[in-house]
Design a protein around this nucleic acid. Structure first.
Lengths: 131, 131
DNA sequence: TCAATATATCGCCACATAACGAAATGGTTG
DNA sequence: CAACCATTTCGTTATGTGGCGATATATTGA
């Protein structure tokens, strides 16, 4: 935390400077989620969500756990405990009653109701009809 | 703090997601400065610095005071006291011993030694020779 | 009023970045 | 092994943003 602190700090602030990534963090605040669940709530392409998650991971705001074909993401220990925590607490508090965030949470509840298998099936490209 | 909190929050995180703006905030942490002093330390064009300051002002991280032709900027009350404060405290602490930031502080000390009039004279375009 | 001047705004250019679809990857299951 | 599948990586495109110089604005002082 001496030479290149600015670089590291900017990686975090840049990660936080995007609406979709904030939405993802707020979703993960409710607990661990797999990629397809985030995709379903945000309504973005899987590749896009994956990119956002990799940016959050690089900034150490988020951690990943692989289980078979599924990837589960959660807030990292450093987000909830380490130096960056105050920043995160501020954002979390500020957005507690934001319309978009509340809508996301409602949608998440619905998404959590059906299992990931079903979600992924729905997200598959339409071009897979018959061969 | 209910409907458009995300928009407001993003304005702050985006303002913090740029190296030059962080450098400016860290300079202002030492006290009020006028534009030409910031220009001298950062080594950027006055118009560029002015833009950065307006972005910081829009995010309410910084406040301005005009005195004659000079504009003096300082950290805003909301930066140092309001909700965003934890985020700022985190950044300030993280960059306390960053090389770039330390270099800026050293340069600022030199810049503070001569008065603004002199700084502005040096910053004027060379094309003003004779008519 | 007019010239000088500190800062702000505007127009432009170069580069960064978010989004997507297509293809690659790594893992599971038949 | 081969088909399948969730996720990631890659290539492309559209938009956003930082930088500068030129110009505009507002203030001082002659």
């Amino acid at each position: 935390m001496s030479k290149r602190a600015l670089r590291a700090t900017l990686q975090v602030t840049k990660a936080l400077a995007d609406a979709q990534r904030i939405r993802i963090l707020m979703l993960l605040a409710t607990g661990e989620l797999c990629v397809c669940q985030v995709v379903e709530v945000l309504g973005l392409a899987p590749s896009t969500v994956s990119k956002h998650l990799s940016i959050l991971t690089a900034a150490e705001l988020v951690e990943m756990r692989k289980e078979g074909r599924w990837a589960y993401y959660r807030l990292s220990a450093s987000t909830t405990t380490a130096p960056a925590r105050p920043a995160w607490e501020w954002i979390k508090a500020a957005l507690k009653s934001d319309d978009q965030i509340l809508a996301d949470r409602r949608k998440l509840k619905a998404v959590m109701a059906c299992d990931p298998e079903e979600l992924c099936r729905r997200q598959r490209p339409r071009s897979e009809r018959t061969t």
